[in-house]
């Protein structure tokens, strides 16, 4: 259904389809100034509400434990305790947790990219009997919450002895229907004539996938890669269920256990939280554009 050839990127606000409140005639202009000021006021308040918790997290991570709950609230600690960021590595297994998390995230993302885009090509450009029905099944399961079938899945994994290994979490995350859906939406916007021409020129289906589709879909692959990486990094439930051995813990599990163990050391808890968020923040800021496009695409009905 999606017609445009490129990802339906969010146009810069105001350039296309200027919003409903965009003043363009004289009657509108009269209200423009107050409306604009109100708009900014709401934006500032909303941004503060959205970001203050993060700000507090960072500022608390630089306090002493007693200073975290000072009255009134200190937003800027007088003498930043940078030592917290040294201490945390010493008293926790942060390094192990980070290593495990990076491993899981990278493997899951690689698998998801490959199987997802490969299958998406099958659904978008190849023909075989039952294709549309199967795709419908894929879409249908997006509406089924994982929590509803985690029990049978767990039984299965324990039958084959995968519990308490990272492979359980990898298997869990790597074949999501969402990835197939996202890539398929993108491939649908690439004209069939392109594939047809390649076929006439003697390229096999695999050749078309590798030489034409993959290079053309780099933006969509980037979106999927970033979304998958972040989801795996942040996942708490999968690791909670499958990774019992502390040596296998991800940063999320580690952080949670750290909080219960050092419940009074508020500042260090915040230090750990900041450290768990920093990698994601970097990935997010670098790849922002692709995140936004990925989300926008997944919201379009095909």
């Amino acid at each position: 259904m999606a017609a445009p050839h490129t990802l339906p990127a969010l146009a810069e606000p105001g350039t296309v389809g200027a919003g409903p409140a965009e003043p363009s005639d004289r009657r509108g202009t009269r209200f423009a100034a107050p409306g604009r000021i109100l708009g900014y006021a709401v934006l500032v308040v909303a941004a503060a509400g959205l970001l203050l918790p993060f700000f507090w997290m960072v500022s608390s991570s630089l306090k002493t434990d007693n200073a975290v709950f000072s009255i009134p609230v200190t937003w800027f600690p007088d003498s930043p305790q940078w030592a917290n960021y040294v201490e945390i590595w010493r008293i926790s297994d942060m390094l192990v947790w980070l290593k495990n998390t990076v491993f899981l995230s990278v493997v899951v993302t690689a698998l998801q990219l490959f199987t997802g885009s490969f299958a998406a090509y099958g659904f978008a450009k190849a023909r075989f009997p039952g294709r549309n029905l199967l795709f419908l099944v894929y879409i249908g399961t997006i509406a089924v919450p994982w929590q509803a079938y985690m029990i049978p899945q767990f039984i299965m994994m324990s039958e084959v002895g995968l519990t308490n290994t990272p492979w359980a979490v990898i298997a869990l995350q790597a074949f999501s229907a969402f990835g197939v859906f996202l890539m398929r939406q993108y491939y649908m916007t690439i004209p069939d004539e392109l594939c047809e021409a390649a076929r006439v020129d003697g390229l096999s289906e695999y050749g078309i996938y590798f030489r034409i589709m993959l290079p053309l879909s780099v933006p969509a692959l980037a979106s999927l890669a970033l979304l998958t990486f972040v989801t795996t990094w942040n996942d708490y439930l999968g690791p909670l269920i499958y990774l019992r051995d502390p040596d296998l813990w991800t940063i999320q599990l580690g952080l949670k256990s750290f909080v219960s163990e050092y419940s009074a050391e508020h500042a260090l808890i915040m230090t750990g939280s900041v450290l768990s968020v920093v990698p994601i923040a970097v990935v997010f800021l670098l790849g922002q554009k692709y995140f936004v496009q990925g989300v926008a695409t997944s919201g379009l009905k095909g």
């Binding site: 490959f114 199987t115 997802g116 490969f118 299958a119 090509y121 099958g122 659904f123 190849a126 023909r127 075989f128 009997p129 294709r131 199967l134 099944v137 894929y138 399961t141 089924v144 509803a148 079938y149 985690m150 029990i151 049978p152 899945q153 299965m156 298997a171 869990l172 790597a174 074949f175 999501s176 229907a177 197939v180 096999s204 289906e205 695999y206 996938y209």
Partner: peptide
């Protein structure tokens, strides 16, 4: 058709086993 199926198969193996089966 066979080629089409081969594209979908790697993902479907995982998806069928880990999502459809449990459901």
């Amino acid at each position: 058709s066979l080629q089409g199926v081969s594209f979908v198969l790697p993902n479907f193996l995982g998806f069928g086993l880990l999502t459809l089966g449990p459901v």
